[in-house]
């Protein structure tokens, strides 16, 4: 059965600007990606030592999820009814290149583990104890219609009651994260491809 679903929160990070539910909540214009991500971590007073071990894709997606979920009461849901459905264009190529540089000398296991795009999903799940459905899709651009269909179907079938979904892409200094918190409880913004596209387009370019 198709039921109404809502975008309870959104977080958009691009060009060193963070938009939470459409509002600019942080910017650090002149830093490179590494320094920018560290400045976000410090600005929001997060304490999570594992953050320092992550690659840029995981740091970006994980920070976006931290900000997205600031008001989320995860204890209201069972771990297995919360899912994470993500997508991007470049999979883990940014870290693949960094790992590949180490092969000639001493292959780095700590980089190799990040040569999969869905590691960022794992990092978000570990932090929040989310144990429901996960999937990572690769497409040349953000495919809101597909995400609406796929995540919406899991919510309609009650396989999930909450879903974190969206886009997390990093290649060298070019990056973008657009995450949505989707719930069944009534909110102002309906979970539709039009609303996702509209929010996606608010990203600073």
């Amino acid at each position: 059965m198709v039921i109404e679903k809502y975008i309870a929160a959104s977080c958009v990070i691009s060009r060193n600007v963070i938009l939470k539910n459409g509002k600019n909540i942080f910017e650090n214009k002149h830093a490179d990606l590494h320094d920018f991500l560290l400045s976000v971590y410090q600005h929001f007073n997060i304490v999570y030592p594992k953050f320092y071990k992550m690659d840029n894709l995981s740091k970006l997606g994980w920070l976006a999820a931290e900000i997205l979920l600031q008001e989320f009461r995860k204890d209201d849901y069972r771990p297995e009814e919360t899912g994470v459905i993500l997508s991007n264009a470049n999979a883990s190529l940014d870290t693949d290149l960094k790992y590949f540089e180490t092969i000639k000398d001493m292959p780095s296991p700590s980089l190799f583990v990040y040569t999969l795009p869905n590691i960022v999903t794992g990092e978000i799940c570990i932090r929040n104890n989310f144990k429901g459905e996960n999937a990572f899709f690769v497409s040349d651009h953000f495919d809101a219609a597909f995400i609406e269909q796929y995540a919406g179907n899991l919510l309609d079938l009650n396989i999930l009651n909450v879903c974190i979904c969206g886009w997390v892409d990093v290649y060298e200094e070019t990056y973008k994260a657009v995450l949505f918190l989707v719930k069944k409880e009534k909110e102002d913004i309906l979970f539709t491809k039009e609303n996702m596209d509209r929010i996606y387009k608010t990203a600073v370019t």
Binding site: V84, G122, E123, C125, I126, N129, K131, G132, E133
Partner: peptide, 11 residues
């Protein structure tokens, strides 16, 4: 069928 996440360790 379905999927789940351990929410335990990345590797």
């Amino acid at each position: 069928g379905g999927t789940s996440n351990d929410a335990n360790h990345i590797s």
